[in-house]
C-alpha cells in the first residue's frame, strides 16, 4: 500500500501546484482586503505542506504488499466514461441498456439472456420513473425515446 500511497500523494501535490499556478492567473482589479486569489493560494499552500508531511511519515514506515489496481475497476471506469460519451448520441434508454449489459458482464455474470433482460428492464424502468413520472428531461436520440 505504501507505494500506492506515495504515488497518490504525489499526484495530489501536482494537482495543488497546478491549482496554485492557475490561481495566479485570476485577474484582479480592485484590491480588496483579501482578493479572489488569497484563499486558494492559502489552501494550496497548506495542502502542499500536508502532502509533504504525509510523504515523510510514509518514508519512515516499512513498505508492505504492492497494491495493484484490478482490471475490473478500470474496465468499469472505462465503461462509465463510454456511457457518458454515448448518452447524448444514443439517448438515455439505449446507452443505459448498453452500459448495464457491459457492467453486468464486468461483474462476472456469464448468462447473456439474463444480462440483456436485466439491462433493458432497468433502463426502461428508470426512464419511466424519471422521465415519465417525475418529468425530468433526459437525453434522447434521433430515434425518439430509444
Amino acid at each position: 500500500m505504501k507505494r500506492a500511497e506515495q504515488w497518490v500523494t504525489l499526484a495530489l501535490m501536482a494537482v495543488s501546484v497546478a491549482y496554485a499556478y492557475s490561481a495566479f492567473s485570476i485577474k484582479v482589479k480592485l484590491d480588496d482586503a483579501i482578493g479572489p486569489r488569497a484563499f486558494p493560494l492559502l489552501v494550496s499552500g497548506v495542502m502542499i505542506v500536508l502532502c509533504l508531511l504525509n510523504l515523510v511519515g510514509l518514508a519512515r514506515k516499512s513498505g508492505d504488499e504492492p497494491a495493484a489496481l484490478g482490471w475490473s475497476e478500470m474496465a468499469m471506469t472505462v465503461l462509465g466514461v463510454v456511457y457518458c460519451v454515448l448518452m447524448p448520441v444514443l439517448g438515455y434508454v439505449l446507452s443505459t441498456a448498453l452500459f448495464m449489459a457491459g457492467g453486468i458482464r464486468v461483474m462476472g455474470e456469464k448468462r447473456w439472456p439474463l444480462t440483456l433482460v436485466v439491462a433493458v428492464v432497468t433502463s426502461l424502468v428508470s426512464w419511466g420513473l424519471f422521465a415519465r413520472m417525475l418529468g425530468v428531461t433526459l437525453p434522447t436520440s434521433p430515434l425518439g425515446i430509444l
Binding site: F99, V106, M107, S123
Partner: peptide, 9 residues
C-alpha cells in the same frame, strides 16, 4: 452497475 446508472441519471 445499477448504482452507477442511478448516480449518472
Amino acid at each position: 452497475p445499477a448504482i452507477i446508472a442511478l448516480a449518472v441519471v
